[in-house]
């Protein structure tokens, strides 16, 4: 039992990294599309909450850097590179589109979807993986402060809340040692809050990762509101709009 606990402590460091490379590695990219022809750079930090014995319960530290562009008034394209993965010799990128499907007259609420692909390749054995992803969110501006300028009324500060889901898909039929892959989708409900401040956006997001899957017997102690199922991810994102 004692060895188990000790190994566990060490292996946490090993496995936490593997775990955060799933859809848990970043918050939603663009819940609301950017302005037409607007550029933005973004960064994110955070991951699933896990207990590292003898250390603490922490969100696993996963980081990414990204770029977005407002292709159309309702369409933003984006790409991100995952810097924590790079440290471990894994090239990881995602690229996707955020498409606004609906918004109300005042543009204070809307629904968007973000199909994306996640690409991975390690520099050691050149193993490649591609996982499609689909996120969808409903957003709602509950407060904003605007000022008049030459273009009319322009929002300067907005607080918005969003709720939706993230889903990642594994298209492979088998996993290690030709065992059947039974987890073809990881579905994760999420909610978050964004403070939009002039050129800066600050986002805090909570993701309930695979709340229907057991989190037992897998080395790492995830913290989940559902006890023995799933994990809870906490993420902080920051975006600078150029």
């Amino acid at each position: 039992m004692r060895e188990f606990q000790f190994i566990r402590k060490q292996f946490c460091l090993f496995l936490l990294v593997s775990i955060v490379i799933l859809s848990a590695c970043a918050p939603s990219r663009f819940v609301k599309p950017l302005e037409h022809k607007q550029h933005a750079i973004s960064g994110s930090f955070g991951g699933p909450l896990a207990t590292i014995p003898g250390v603490a319960t922490i969100p696993l530290p996963y980081t990414s850097l990204g770029y977005g562009y407002g292709l159309k008034p309702s369409t933003t394209i984006y790409a991100n590179c995952y810097t924590t993965a790079a440290i471990f010799g894994v090239v990881q990128f995602d690229a996707g589109v955020t498409q606004n499907l609906w918004k109300n007259k005042n543009a204070t609420m809307g629904i968007s979807i973000s199909p994306a692909v996640n690409f991975y390749s390690d520099v050691f054995e050149n193993n490649k993986r591609l996982f499609p992803q689909l996120d969808a969110n409903y957003y709602f501006d509950y407060w904003n402060k605007s000022k008049e300028n030459a273009k009319g009324k322009e929002k300067q500060k907005t607080n918005n809340f969003y709720v939706g889901f993230s889903s990642m898909y594994d298209l492979k039929r088998t996993k290690a040692h030709n065992q059947p892959q039974t987890n073809h989708m990881i579905f994760s409900p999420q909610f978050g809050h964004t403070f939009e401040r002039n050129n800066w956006n600050y986002t805090l997001e909570v993701k309930l990762l695979a709340p229907y899957k057991s989190n037992q017997d897998i080395v790492l102690d995830y913290v989940s509101p559902f006890g023995k199922k799933g994990a809870m991810g906490i993420y902080f994102g920051i975006t600078y709009k150029l």
């Binding site: 292996f11 090993f14 496995l15 990294v17 593997s18 775990i19 490379i21 799933l22 993965a85 471990f88 010799g89 894994v90 991975y120 390690d122 050691f124 054995e125 193993n127 993986r129 996982f131 990642m168 594994d170 492979k172 088998t174 996993k175 290690a176 892959q181 987890n183 990881i186 695979a210 899957k213 017997d217 897998i218 080395v219 790492l220």
Partner: peptide, 15 residues
């Protein structure tokens, strides 16, 4: 070990 934890078919060579 990796796939148990991640649910996805990641190769061990990533780590």
């Amino acid at each position: 070990m990796v796939q148990d934890a991640s649910l996805l078919s990641f190769p061990a060579s990533y780590f």
